[in-house]
Design a protein around this nucleic acid. Structure first.
Lengths: 244, 244
DNA sequence: TGACACCGATGTGTGCAGACATCAAAACTC
DNA sequence: GAGTTTTGATGTCTGCACACATCGGTGTCA
């Protein structure tokens, strides 16, 4: 691989923290990381700085590099999400993402119906039809690509950059659940139609109908996947007060 | 001044990029940054690495450090949000945040009604009552603190870490709109009651009522603030396809 | 004798300076 | 115009000085 030492160092330590291999409160020394990773101080230091900005570690003089509790991790960082999706904590991460999508996508659909440029509207309709066709013929690979494209264009068309930024996370979610065999051989006929309904509502500028179709899609997705995380305990992030 | 050089370097360059002082595509040299900031190579390099992980810049061999378009910035990073809120692009940032909150908080209210631990439920009720009192007496400072606390506890009680992580952003939003004089002297009486309704619905485990109250609050907040950003153009983030 | 305050030794992150390696753009050669 | 060399930037490594929190010893006082 041509990945840089810097990148590999981040990947190595980040992964070990997310998986719990390096537990909360664990203290490492920069020198020790140099030896473990067989890299120089500069590489370690730059990697630690990045991990620090992700909320994974903090550096304390005279102590070392301490692993922070998961409540401090930035749950929106693409890297953090990827690491969590490929670790044991996958269930909790998927649930968080689905709940977020369920909240955001209907709102995005509404905004897209109001604001999206014409090009994105027609693109969305085209993708929806192609998606329905792919669902019928049973082409799993193509279906996944179109599914990702559909939701990406929808989020992009909302004109809200924070919604749009969830594209990547949605792609990871959809890919992940396909890879882990959580998809049926033939998609639900109703869901396929709802995608078309949603696209046409956006194209027609019908915000209410767009939201409605999106809510139906997300409800079905949630109910289909909820059984995979019933055992996952909920984590309650403590409220951090700024003032004294 | 106890802030580290590393931190100051990030702050300096990050701010200049967000404000547009360093425009998209602008290329800097590491050596040039050393001179500008009067710091050593290692400080510059570590700062650049962090900015890179935030999507603000990319480094290209033989070229330099190039500023990335705003569509590549991580809009969920607390630092990026803070920078944007204190720059000219504040309007667009506020709109994005409000739209996100409008989508997320009703869902969070629903989840909190279903899952929140007893302690958070009763705390939410207490805060809601105190908030109503502060609204009546007109204590602006106290009102702001309680408002932040209320929404933080609600998000925390949802048991969804991605929802909970929005606490910080919400605090910034509420503080920002108070600082910029967008708050009325006396809060809307209905809104005060809705907060109490929301808290009691969560306490009673009534998910539908909780969502309903939250939607009312967010609708009112949105309509009150929407006039401040009517002139802001929408930005449509292009869809980034992964594969070839 | 015991408790407490002080103070220096120690270890570790922070910041600095200089060197070589690597690699891609640009210039050059044929 | 294709292939090669040069050039100039980041990438990586290393040794050093400094700041500062922690720990342990020492001295003082009750």
């Amino acid at each position: 691989m041509s990945t840089s030492l810097h990148h590999r160092a981040i990947e190595n330590v980040g992964t070990r923290i997310i998986t719990g291999d390096l537990p909360t409160g664990h203290v490492m020394l920069a020198e020790q990381l140099e030896e473990e990773l067989k890299v120089s101080r500069s590489v370690v230091r730059e990697a630690v700085r990045v991990l620090q900005s992700l909320g994974l570690v903090e550096t304390i003089k005279r102590v070392g590099i301490r692993v922070l509790p998961s409540s401090r991790w930035n749950p929106y960082d693409p890297q953090v999400i990827r690491w969590r999706l490929s670790s044991e904590g996958r269930g909790a991460q998927l649930r968080s993402l689905i709940e977020l999508r369920s909240a955001v996508e209907p709102a995005a659909a509404e905004l897209a119906a109001k604001n999206a440029p014409a090009g994105l509207r027609s693109e969305l309709v085209d993708i929806a039809h192609a998606l329905r066709d792919a669902g019928h013929t049973g082409d799993g690979q193509k279906f996944l690509e179109l599914d990702i494209a559909f939701h990406s264009v929808l989020l992009s068309g909302s004109g809200n950059e924070m919604f749009a930024n969830l594209m990547g996370q949605v792609a990871e979610t959809l890919t992940g659940r396909t890879v882990h065999g959580l998809m049926p051989d033939h998609p639900h006929e109703g869901a396929l139609q709802w995608h078309v309904d949603l696209a046409e509502a956006v194209a027609a500028g019908d915000a209410a109908a767009a939201r409605d179709a999106s809510e139906r899609i997300m409800r079905r997705t949630t109910s289909r996947l909820s059984e995979t995380w019933t055992d996952q305990p909920r984590v309650f992030i403590p409220v951090r007060r700024t003032g004294a």
